[in-house]
Design a protein around this nucleic acid. Sequence first.
DNA 1: CAGGTAGATGCGACTGAGTTGCAACTAGAT
DNA 2: ATCTAGTTGCAACTCAGTCGCATCTACCTG
Lengths: 150, 150
Amino acid sequence: MPLPQTEVPGRLQAHFAERGIRMTQQRRAILSVMETASKHLDASQILRKAQKIDASVDRSTVYRTLRLLKRHGLIDELDLMHINGEGHYYERRLGRDHIHMACLRCGKITEFVSDSFERLKQQVEKDCRFRVLISRLEIGGYCATCRGSQ
Amino acid sequence: MPLPQTEVPGRLQAHFAERGIRMTQQRRAILSVMETASKHLDASQILRKAQKIDASVDRSTVYRTLRLLKRHGLIDELDLMHINGEGHYYERRLGRDHIHMACLRCGKITEFVSDSFERLKQQVEKDCRFRVLISRLEIGGYCATCRGSQ
DNA sequence: CAGGTAGATGCGACTGAGTTGCAACTAGAT
DNA sequence: ATCTAGTTGCAACTCAGTCGCATCTACCTG
Ligand SMILES: [Mn+2]
Ligand SMILES: [Mn+2]
Ligand SMILES: [Zn+2]
Ligand SMILES: [Zn+2]
């Protein structure tokens, strides 16, 4: 007799389970949103999506869970150059970091993985004797399309 | 008969003059704060410093002037990993960009100039056909001192 | 399969950063 | 000296994020 298993437990849930972090309905919903998100979501988008899974989820729980995920290094927080208001965007942290480029004209966000970026971080570790845990490289400018027209 | 010239006009003022941007008492005060600041100031620090030069400066004028400076690419806006609240920090933009490292334990901010960073940006320009105007690399982790103890 | 409890949640009130509409003011052109 | 477009101060506002607290619940222990 299978339970009404809304979501397949993913890596985020696994990470929580491994270190004995309590799993709740609400967290399950929020984690599943973060697992399956294809792109940068802000807190209110995460709230809305999570409420579709569990209607009881509250705004403050979203923020508390995001803080928890951040503390565990499982998600990254982005500004995306504040192209749209003052809020932040969140994205699951997978194997390799990537750079975010925001077009100041059309607002498009592009991602870019680069070995040079990895090397740069290693240089910081070595030259500055600084342990790198989080890194965020955001670039503002004009995308290929907008660069042509004006 | 010299006027009560509080501050020597600096490069920011010069930039404004060159493109016929109106110069006011309040702007003069704020620009001079930004010119002479040695480190990352947030809006309320800028306000307080500017008010010492011209007591009439208002919070909204500070924000409006910062927006103007940003638009002209004369200052950079930083999060400094939100180590202290949700606000932003501002810093004059000089010749070369630099990386900001924030120690998650002691809160120290370190700056680092790197050729690899310049090359990375050039790679983005070339490989992504993206015109780079602003770039912000912020790193969170542990500084040399804090890395040792725990 | 009960308790019991530490930890999580919802709610509503709050904070703090940044913005805005508007009437009054002023820089700088004529 | 006059004129006017651009700027300012002010106060009211928006919006993101936080917090205190009563209630609830995941999960441990027996
Ligand atoms: Mn991304
Ligand atoms: Mn930010
Ligand atoms: Zn574009
Ligand atoms: Zn430190």
